[in-house]
């Protein structure tokens, strides 16, 4: 059974588009990267899943049911902006969440210690990063079966980011499914099994990280300039005596073509996930 199943979801805020046509699913024990530019509709989808928004059309199920407060017991949710009761201390705020979720104090104390969170501070006195830490503890304390995380590492320092990603892997290892919305493709690449790319309210594609990397473009740098012509090869830029190409196709054809050139330097790289997605964005915008 899919933990999350979204089928042709459409959400409009009056005349304004939230999402146009979104379909994807999240499987048991999977970490799914949900990526896209600002305004693409990521947060709208997440808010629908969390029962904060109603849908215009299509269908959305979480654990096989329509989103509801009942499902939320099994979900850990971290919004992109963590706003809490400013007059409370971190401890009181977490205790409040724990009492509603029916978990013991130890559950959040341990997480707070892992993230080096000062429990006696007032929420109002916390930095953005520390508020985020409170949100992380609140989302993980009840060991949820599903984690929905919206830009979870924004505002966190690199060390805490690392700790957080290891907490995610730990959650995955105990069988949790994770929907991770992020702009940081390096972290998506690091922890996600699969990626869904959304743009202007529509899903551009969905595939496993492995498949994306194995089937995608290479970057080719040659010196001197040789004006190569080959199917799948595209000149990206020229720098002095050096040319940079992107290539998608049979690597043997590429090496054959390169062997006929008199080169002083040759380098072939895998494109990073960043570069691959930039390619997809540009392709959709008709730049390819």
């Amino acid at each position: 059974m899919d933990i999350v199943a979204i089928d042709h979801l459409k959400k409009y805020y009056g005349p304004a588009r939230g999402v146009e046509d979104v379909s994807f699913s999240l499987k048991q024990g999977e970490i799914l990267g949900f990526i896209g530019p600002n305004g693409a509709g990521k947060s709208t989808v997440i808010r629908v899943l969390m029962n904060l928004l109603n849908i215009t059309s299509g269908s959305v199920t979480v654990f096989g049911e329509q989103p509801s407060h009942r499902n939320n017991r099994r979900i850990g949710y971290l919004p992109s902006e963590v706003n809490l009761y400013s007059e409370m201390t971190v401890y009181d705020q977490l205790k409040y969440f724990a009492s509603i979720r029916g978990v013991k104090e130890e559950a959040f104390l341990e997480l707070a210690e892992t993230l080096d969170l000062d429990l006696q501070k007032k929420i109002a006195d916390l930095s953005l990063g520390n508020k985020k830490k409170v949100g992380i503890v609140a989302s993980l304390m009840h060991e949820p079966e599903l984690l929905i995380l919206d830009e979870p590492t924004s505002g966190l320092d690199p060390l805490v980011q690392q700790t957080f990603l290891s907490l995610l892997v730990k959650a995955k290892n105990r069988g949790a499914s994770i929907l991770l919305s992020s702009h940081v493709l390096a972290e998506v690449e690091k922890v996600c099994d699969r990626v869904v790319l959304i743009k202007e309210g529509r899903i551009l594609f969905s595939d496993t990280i492995e498949a994306i990397k194995s089937s995608s473009y290479k970057k080719v740098k040659v010196t001197p300039r040789v004006k190569l012509e080959l199917e799948g090869l595209k000149l990206l830029k020229t720098e002095g005596n050096r040319e940079e190409y992107s290539f998608k196709g049979d690597i043997n054809q590429l090496t054959k073509a390169l062997s006929s050139c008199d080169l002083t330097e040759l380098a072939i790289f895998d494109l990073t996930l960043d570069e691959i997605f930039m390619h997809y964005y540009h392709k959709e915008n008709g730049h390819d």
Partner: peptide, 8 residues
């Protein structure tokens, strides 16, 4: 976001 997504 955090309060109304509690299981209540």
């Amino acid at each position: 976001d955090l309060i109304y997504t509690l299981p209540v």
